[in-house]
Lab assay of single mutants.
Amino acid sequence: SDPSEDRAPESARVGNIPSSTSALKVPQLKVAESAQGPAAAHTTDTAGYNAMEESVSREKPELTASTERVNKRMSMVVSGLTPEEFMLVYKFARKHHITLTNLITEETTHVVMKTDAEFVCERTLKYFLGIAGGKWVVSYFWVTQSIKERKMLNEHDFEVRGDVVNGRNHQGPKRARESQDRKIFRGLEICCYGPFTNMPTDQLEWMVQLCGASVVKELSSFTLGTGVHPIVVVQPDAWTEDNGFHAIGQMCEAPVVTREWVLDSVALYQCQELDTYLIPQIPHSHY
């Protein structure tokens, strides 16, 4: 159930021909089969995070001529859309010479989310990475209204306002976009420790780096000194050995919190207090 199309920051360009055919990675995205229709094609874990990302398996898109002007500035990904909605975005992107990729990268400028009429969405990996990267996180209605009015409308009017977990109007995407000089995790050293489900560890690490944190791979690698705040992030329900995560405190002095601390902080683009996310640790033995 991992969102495989989000696994690594590679891009698939639509609308320009790469210098070599080997560089072309066409979105071959799968549809989750469901008797209840597209709305039930998501699996949500206890964290309220949509693990099964969206989309559609299609034939290789038709490439435009390399001489045609390509908008190098805009690059989009989509999240939560049905196959039909994805194809509408594809046509919109081609019309406006926008790069459409299946994986979010540093070059991505827009994340197009499936939302309700009030621009509230589910939480997906692309949603988190879009906010963390200060990108435009907009409703699919931006595409449909632009098509209806036959011009590209202003993104401000379609920015995602909230999500089904953290609140319907928290304005996290807007706050992140306007606060890239004040990253929420700066001054923190974060170790993403142990197993994680539904989200590859490297993507979680990239997320906290985008928010200004330094990533530490091992508990023994924390910088011990003033001005640096170490934090260990774990996902308790992913551990097979009972309560192993309670013993992390015996290996390092850092506070240990659940992954929800990261996800909530990123969604709201406000660093949350650790208290409600802390995992009790077995104290050091004193002999």
Results as ranks from 00 to 15, higher is better:
Tyr140Ser: 05
Pro83Trp: 03
Ile98Thr: 05
Asn16Leu: 11
Cys191Val: 11
Glu178Asn: 05
Gly244Leu: 15
Arg175Lys: 14
Asp264Arg: 07
Glu106Pro: 10
His246Leu: 12
Tyr140Val: 09
Asn243Phe: 15
Phe245Pro: 13
Val234Glu: 01
Leu81Pro: 03
Thr197Ser: 15
Arg161Lys: 14
Lys151Ser: 14
Asp45Leu: 15
Gln270Val: 15
Ser1Phe: 08
Asn16Gly: 10
Cys121Arg: 01
Asp237Gly: 03
Ser11Arg: 05
Leu188Ala: 08
Phe141Trp: 15
Glu155His: 15
Leu24Val: 13
Pro9Tyr: 05
Gln171Pro: 02
Ser79Tyr: 03
Val262Thr: 01
Gln235Arg: 02
Gly194Ala: 14
Ser22Cys: 08
Glu159Thr: 09
Gln281Trp: 15
Tyr277Thr: 00
Ala35Pro: 09
Pro9Arg: 05
Tyr193Leu: 14
Lys30Thr: 12
Lys135Asp: 02
Trp239Glu: 15
Glu189Leu: 08
Ala40Leu: 11
Lys135Val: 08
Tyr90His: 10
Gly15Ile: 04
Val137Ala: 01
Ala12Lys: 11
Lys30Ala: 09
Pro255Ser: 14
Leu24Thr: 11
Gln180Cys: 04
Glu118Lys: 05
Ser66Ala: 05
Leu153Pro: 02
Asn166Cys: 15
Leu129Ile: 12
Glu241Asp: 15
Leu100Phe: 07
Arg7Leu: 09
Glu149Arg: 14
Leu81Arg: 01
Tyr49Ser: 12
Gly225Leu: 15
Lys30Pro: 03
His286Tyr: 08
Lys217Leu: 13
Cys191Ser: 04
Lys114Val: 03
Gly212Arg: 04
Leu81Ala: 00
Tyr49Gly: 12
Pro9Lys: 11
Cys191Gln: 03
Arg177Tyr: 00
Ser4Lys: 07
Arg13Val: 12
His284Tyr: 12
Leu153Thr: 07
Pro283Ser: 12
Val262Ala: 12
Ser57Ile: 12
Glu107Ala: 10
Thr201Gln: 06
Gly15Leu: 11
Gly227Thr: 10
Thr64Ala: 07
Glu68Thr: 04
Glu149Leu: 11
Gly187Leu: 02
Asp116Ala: 00
Phe86Ser: 05
His170Ile: 04
Gly37Pro: 07
Gln36Asn: 11
Asn243Ala: 15
Ile147Thr: 15
Lys151Pro: 01
Arg161Ser: 10
Glu118His: 09
Asn154Val: 09
Thr101Arg: 09
Val256Thr: 07
Gln36Ser: 06
His97Leu: 09
Ser285Ala: 12
Ile248Pro: 12
Thr99Gln: 12
Met87Ala: 02
Lys72Ser: 06
Glu189Gly: 05
Ser66Glu: 05
Val262Pro: 04
Glu62Pro: 08
Glu253Cys: 12
Ala267Arg: 03
Pro3Val: 06
Glu59Ile: 06
His42Val: 04
Ser285Met: 14
Pro61Asn: 09
Ala176Leu: 01
Gly172Thr: 08
Pro173Glu: 00
Leu274Ser: 07
Glu84Ser: 15
Asp242Arg: 12
Lys95Leu: 12
Glu273Val: 05
Thr258Ser: 15
Glu5Leu: 09
Met199Gln: 04
Tyr90Ser: 10
Val138Tyr: 00
Val262Asp: 01
Lys148Asn: 08
Pro18Gln: 04
His97Glu: 09
Pro83Thr: 10
Ser55Leu: 05
Phe196Val: 06
Val70Ala: 13
Pro3Cys: 03
Phe222Arg: 09
Cys252Ala: 11
Ala8His: 05
Arg175Pro: 00
Ser285Val: 10
Ser1Leu: 06
Phe196Leu: 13
Trp142Pro: 00
Glu218Ala: 01
Thr144Arg: 04
Glu33Val: 11
Arg168Ser: 08
Ala32Ser: 06
Tyr90Leu: 08
Gln180Leu: 13
Asp157Thr: 08
Ser179Thr: 09
Ala12Phe: 12
Asn50Ser: 06
Gly80Met: 07
Lys91Arg: 02
Ala65Gly: 12
Cys192Ala: 10
Glu218Ser: 13
Pro83Ser: 13
Ser19Met: 04
Ala32Gln: 08
Pro38Leu: 04
Pro195Phe: 15
Gly212Lys: 05
Pro195Gln: 15
Val257Gln: 02
Thr197Cys: 15
Asp157Gln: 13
Asp242Leu: 12
Val14Asn: 08
Val120Gly: 03
Val256Lys: 02
Arg161Asp: 03
Gln171Asp: 08
Glu189His: 10
Phe158Ile: 00
Glu54Met: 11
Tyr287Ala: 12
Gly167Ala: 02
Pro18Cys: 13
Glu107Arg: 07
